[in-house]
């Protein structure tokens, strides 16, 4: 049982921090950089990716015994494309404003390497409940970076947070919009793609800094002194 708990703990840790798809594997950078001009867009795309990731991981894990090794990649792509289509139609039906704002990047979730990467590296080798949890954690890791990036860019470029949250969460969320400061001349760079690259670079640098700091301050294992026996018995 404790083994099971350990597995989940390890998956959480891997997905959110150690092996974060956006920060460490640097997968799925295209949507990451393209749609994160606001928190709302970032959150929308992050949740969509998360749902696809969980769905595809479960399915791939369930069919892993029946798929011949040679054609596994096309099969995985078909599975992923199915889920993306489902999500796309759902978004079209329920969050139409966000659907329009994200545009081509919803169908492009199919090409997000983070998803096929997890299908290939984890789901095709592990039981379905582990795969589902792995998808959830990887998706959360991806979404959190998306939201962080979107938040920084939105603050720098617009001076607001959660602008247009009602597109995603319904009418009540219009109140979530926070105007931190009003700018006469927005820092356009933060909204434009180069700003995404620069902010992303700083986020990765921050993660590495924290890792280094932790490594430097971690408790060092006691040195074991082993004596070489020099005299014969």
């Amino acid at each position: 049982m404790s083994n099971e708990v350990n597995t989940y703990k390890e998956l959480t840790w891997q997905g959110l921090w150690n092996n974060n798809p956006a920060l460490v594997q640097l997968l799925g950078l295209c949507p990451l950089l393209a749609v994160t001009a606001t928190v709302t867009n970032a959150l929308g795309l992050g949740l969509a990716t998360l749902l696809v990731l969980v769905g595809s991981n479960i399915t791939v894990s369930l069919v892993r015994e029946f798929v011949p090794k040679e054609i596994r990649i096309p099969v995985f792509v078909m599975v992923i494309a199915t889920f993306v289509t489902v999500i796309q139609l759902l978004m079209n039906a329920y969050v139409y404003g966000l659907y329009q704002a994200l545009g081509i990047f919803i169908p492009l979730i199919v090409t997000n390497c983070a998803i096929i990467g997890r299908a290939e590296a984890y789901a095709s080798k592990n039981p379905w409940h582990h795969a589902a949890f792995d998808g959830l954690m990887m998706g959360l890791g991806f979404t959190s970076i998306l939201v962080l990036l979107g938040g920084i860019r939105e603050v720098l470029g617009n001076g607001t947070l959660f602008d247009g949250a009602n597109l995603l969460l319904g009418e009540w969320a219009a109140n979530l919009r926070v105007e931190l400061f009003s700018v006469d001349y927005p820092l356009l760079l933060a909204i434009l793609p180069p700003g995404a690259f620069i902010v992303m670079g700083f986020i990765i640098a921050g993660k590495n800094w924290i890792d280094n700091y932790r490594a430097a301050h971690a408790e060092k294992p006691e040195k074991q002194v082993t004596r070489a026996r020099v005299t014969s018995q």
Binding site: Y185, P186, L187, L188, L189, A190, L192, P194
Partner: peptide, 10 residues
């Protein structure tokens, strides 16, 4: 370039 693409008017 940072300034030019961010603040074209100024």
């Amino acid at each position: 370039v940072l300034l030019l693409i961010s603040f074209p008017v100024q």
